[in-house]
């Protein structure tokens, strides 16, 4: 949905989104990285009616950017910077927990 406007000088950061390798840039938030990768749509499905959603506000207020990061669900992707090796999983409905 987004592309880089400039010849980006920031170092690359390798993450995976739903198992796919994605190259992000230092300074990207998780949401920015997913929106730029373009390989995964929709961003998530809601916990209430299972409708597709994507980040709306990018400033931490709307909670439409929720993703699972390194096994922890319902995290605000728009507030969390990417880091090398981060494993991101899209959410399909309600939060899942493991015992």
């Amino acid at each position: 949905m987004f592309k880089r406007a400039t010849n980006h000088q920031e170092p690359a950061v390798q993450i995976t989104v739903d198992g796919l390798p994605v190259t992000a840039r230092r300074g990207d938030t998780v949401s920015a990285a997913i929106l730029t990768a373009g390989c995964v749509e929709p961003y998530r499905y809601t916990a209430v009616n299972g409708t597709p959603r994507a980040p709306y506000c990018m400033m931490g207020v709307c909670f439409d950017c929720l993703v699972t990061i390194d096994g922890i669900g319902n995290r605000q992707g728009c507030l969390i910077p990417v880091s090398d090796g981060m494993v991101i999983t899209r959410q399909n409905g309600k939060r899942e927990i493991e015992s």
């Binding site: 949905m1 987004f2 592309k3 880089r4 406007a5 400039t6 980006h8 840039r25 300074g27 990207d28 938030t29 920015a32 929106l35 730029t36 373009g38 749509e41 929709p42 961003y43 409708t51 597709p52 959603r53 994507a54 980040p55 709306y56 506000c57 990018m58 400033m59 439409d64 728009c78």
Partner: peptide, 26 residues
């Protein structure tokens, strides 16, 4: 339809521009 993926705020767009140098494609 404001909940559809692809609809976001201008503030969101500007945040992506400032913090990651991103502009919408398409």
């Amino acid at each position: 339809g404001w909940t559809l993926p692809g609809v976001m705020t201008i503030g969101a767009g500007q945040t992506l521009l400032k913090s990651s140098g991103l502009i919408p494609s398409g």
